[in-house]
Design a protein around this nucleic acid. Structure first.
Ligand code: FES
Ligand code: FES
Lengths: 146, 146
DNA sequence: GTATACTCTACTATTATAATAGAGATTATC
DNA sequence: GATAATCTCTATTATAATAGTAGAGTATAC
């Protein structure tokens, strides 16, 4: 698995929106400034997240973005996979993939499968609600409600 | 972590050399044919592996490549890291990395650290001797000695 | 109707990946 | 010592992914 800037930004954005969950929409500019993400890049990311129904938006004055689901209903794994693609370190872990030379006899395949599983076990069991709690605990100055 | 073609080829090559360990050098062409790896690409990979002292070579007739260490002394993790770089899904897991905005307070960092650790636990505890045993078990037609 | 804020498409620069090409150096054997 | 086999080294190339940037367009509150 590889977390790109886009993925990193997406996760931080969702966490920020989770922190403001229930308090009306947050505008891109605020997210961009707070999280130190290039505005135009963040626009694209939010559109992607919107298409996947992680977030919803409202246009015009008093517009902005908000989470489409409760933070407890969104996992780290879901968002990561959506933005950065499959977590498998190599495509042949997927049984349907037929690229490898002699996949049936390959000893590496099952190992990459184990790696994937252990990663999945971690990221699929952490919700943004969990993350929010952790960040409140760690960082007392955390701005979870303006 | 991401296994590239180069990394995949390197691992398969080392496994093949492990299978021939103690039986004199193997020529690039044989490796290339057996493992279905483009010859010129494999040349480069072997040079890299040589510089890292995973393999050693002999030129001229009766030349070729052989493992520089016993298969039990080479782990999957070592080779993977050497060819495909750090296994961390994101660079900031490394404490010395200072790229992230507010790394101290970041809740994601420790999660990526967990992911790295669980991956490391797997790949750093598998040697090519282990892999060789597995492949002999799985694949009865495995050509471990010509 | 105007300012605010999201929406959409296209473009660009940089880097990584997966090779390919070809000349050069070493060694065993006859 | 010529020759064939084999590794060595540097350069080049094609494609794709990444990380943005640019700008015109659309909806909404007031
Ligand atoms: S089947 Fe793909 S690495 Fe072995
Ligand atoms: S410190 Fe890098 S993702 Fe948080």
């Amino acid at each position: 698995m590889k977390i790109t800037y886009k993925g990193d930004y997406a996760l931080k954005t969702i966490l920020d929106l989770a922190a403001h969950f229930g308090n009306g929409p947050v505008v891109i500019n605020d997210l961009s400034r707070r999280l130190d993400i290039p505005t135009k890049f963040l626009e694209q990311i939010l559109l992607d997240l919107k298409r996947a129904h992680f977030v919803e938006s409202k246009r015009g004055k008093i517009g902005g973005y908000s989470l489409a689901r409760h933070p407890g209903q969104i996992t780290l794994g879901e968002v990561t996979r959506f933005i950065d693609g499959p977590i498998e370190p190599i495509a042949c872990v997927d049984k349907r993939y037929s690229g490898c030379h002699d996949a049936g006899a390959c000893v590496f395949r099952s190992i990459w499968g184990q790696v994937s599983s252990s990663t999945a076990k971690i990221i699929d069991n952490i919700t943004f609600e969990d993350l929010l709690k952790r960040s409140k605990r760690t960082n007392k100055s955390f701005n979870y409600q303006i």
